[in-house]
């Protein structure tokens, strides 16, 4: 079986700086992979390459047997990749409900006409979407915040809402960018449970960028390590833990 996501020699340069260099990475179906590395190693850039925010200057990215190179971020989301952001990017002026509802866009094609006519098809459609959104919010204990503004949630809830919003696009691959940032020990354990739960319940693959070793080592099946845009190691958590190159990159030389 081919990998769900296959990155071949992906490279991106900003002016003279090569942010990611000839990166090879594969993610299988229903696999949980971690991407780690020191600050500025290019982890978020890899996310931006996969999701089409940046276009690679070289190499190929194949997802579900389709090339992602040259596609726009919203098209890539439609193909089944969803993401969260390192610095939370919710739609601040909208309610929790609307933040999730927005993703239903993907599944309602005749938006303008239906919204203007407001016939029974529109009402049924909106009702169906609302039910789905509420069901999803309930699963993640956000139902009670339905009408609260996203900006008003606590930090942990905002992180959770961002994950829910990404899930609502019905992805095959979920990219999580430092979800544990700013969380305390208890929250981190909850987060690990949450990620595991999502992966099992929705049978999707997860790529996790994370600084926190406890989280990464705790749940990832495979870990890739980036340093200065180059992959310096890849393997099971215990292998990475023992890898001298990785230790060197983290401790500095």
């Amino acid at each position: 079986m081919t990998a769900l996501l296959q990155i071949d020699k992906a490279t991106i340069r900003f002016g003279g700086l090569t942010a990611v260099s000839e990166l090879d990475l594969q993610i299988g179906r229903n696999e949980l992979v971690g991407l780690i590395g020191p600050n500025g190693a290019g982890k978020t850039t890899v996310f931006n390459l996969i999701t089409g925010v940046y276009q690679p200057t070289g190499g190929e990215i194949i997802f579900d047997n389709r090339s992602l190179v040259g596609r726009k971020p919203h098209q890539i989301t439609r193909h089944g990749i969803a993401r969260t952001f390192q610095n939370i990017r919710l739609f601040g002026s909208m309610t929790v409900f609307d933040n999730v509802r927005i993703t239903a866009q993907l599944h309602c094609p005749r938006g303008v006409r239906n919204a203007l006519w407001r016939g029974s098809a529109f009402r049924d459609g909106e009702k169906e979407i609302a039910d789905e959104v509420m069901a999803l919010l309930e699963i993640f204990q956000l139902g009670k915040f339905r009408d609260a503004l996203a900006n008003g949630l606590s930090y942990g809830d905002q992180r959770r809402l961002e994950i829910v919003r990404a899930l609502a696009t019905r992805p095959k691959l979920l990219l999580l960018d430092e979800p544990a940032a700013g969380m305390n020990a208890i929250e981190k354990i909850e987060l690990m449970r949450l990620i595991q739960f999502i992966k099992d319940k929705y049978q999707i693959s997860v790529l996790l960028v994370e600084h926190d070793m406890q989280v990464v080592m705790g749940i990832c099946e495979r870990i890739a390590v980036l340093d200065y845009g180059i992959k310096i190691a890849e393997g099971k958590p215990e292998e990475i833990r023992a890898n001298s190159k990785v230790i060197e990159a983290y401790l500095g030389s």
């Binding site: 971020p73 952001f85 739609f91 002026s93 919003r165 696009t169």
Partner: peptide, 16 residues
């Protein structure tokens, strides 16, 4: 409104 609030996040949610 999503486009207004955050274009990058909007496109990441599949919004053109």
């Amino acid at each position: 409104i999503a486009v207004r609030d955050d274009e990058v996040a909007a496109s990441a949610m599949g919004i053109s």
